[in-house]
Amino acid sequence: MATDAPHTPEPRVDVRFLRDDGYLGDGLGRIVAGAVPPLLPMLGGVVVTATLLVAGLGQDSGITLFAPAVALLLSGVASGHPHDGRRDWIVPPILRGTEYVYLLALGHGSEVPGPLVFVLVAAVAVHHRDAVCRTHCGVRPPTRAIRARLGWDGRMLLVALGGVLGWLPFAYGALASYLVVLLVWDAWTSWLAAPVATVTLDSRNELGGVDASTT
């Protein structure tokens, strides 16, 4: 009687890689050396950020544009935690969703052209999707490529800086172009670095095709 093949457990996904923290988030995490669980700081930052967005981000100007991004940095103190809790897996998608909402709300409230807002949010989403696919395949891009994405904190703060300087449409367009070029370059270099499999063709087709063996 045939026996079932032994089940090989899938490798555990490192949730910290999916957080997409930038330099500031990583720096805050190193200060506390992973001692802070990620869920509560993230929820606190998201609640404050959402409150500021609902209060009317589009009517804000100057330094107040930084408030939602700075509030979300509360979650950065937990970036060094191993994220091995039962519900810690929800941290990355909530951080990503908050970044999307911030970019959409700021762009819409400040009358940034819709195509620019769409391209920027789409570029960020594709980078996030790329990170998820690589993680599930057990492949991580080089550290320099991860750092080049700037992290959710870096992207939000750069857009806020563009709003403070009165260059918000330019900031959206420049950041979107940078992320698209980075995505294409990363994909191109990854394809070139991938090993080429050698395919051996067998002249005998044992599945019953036109060249099936007759012996």
Rank of each mutant, 00 (worst) to 15 (best):
P115D: 06
L116Q: 10
H108V: 13
S110D: 05
V101D: 01
L104I: 15
R96E: 14
G97L: 12
V101L: 15
P93M: 04
T98F: 04
Y100P: 01
H108L: 13
Y102I: 05
P113H: 14
P92M: 10
P115N: 06
P92D: 11
G114I: 12
Y102G: 02
P93H: 03
E111S: 14
V117A: 12
T98D: 02
S110L: 07
A105H: 04
L120E: 01
G97H: 04
L106E: 09
L104F: 13
S110H: 15
L104S: 06
L116P: 02
L103W: 09
L116K: 03
L95N: 15
L104W: 15
L95F: 03
L103V: 08
T98C: 14
E99T: 10
P113Q: 13
G114N: 11
L104Y: 12
I94Q: 02
I94R: 08
G97V: 07
G107C: 02
L103Q: 07
E99P: 00
G109T: 08
V119Q: 00
L116I: 05
I94L: 15
I94N: 03
L106H: 11
H108G: 04
P115Y: 00
P93C: 03
L120P: 01
V117F: 07
Y102V: 05
E111N: 13
A105K: 07
F118N: 00
P115K: 03
L104D: 08
V112H: 05
G114F: 14
G97A: 12
L103T: 07
L95G: 15
L106Y: 10
L95T: 11
G107S: 03
L103R: 09
V101F: 09
P113N: 13
P115E: 01
V112F: 04
H108N: 06
T98M: 15
V117M: 15
G97Q: 04
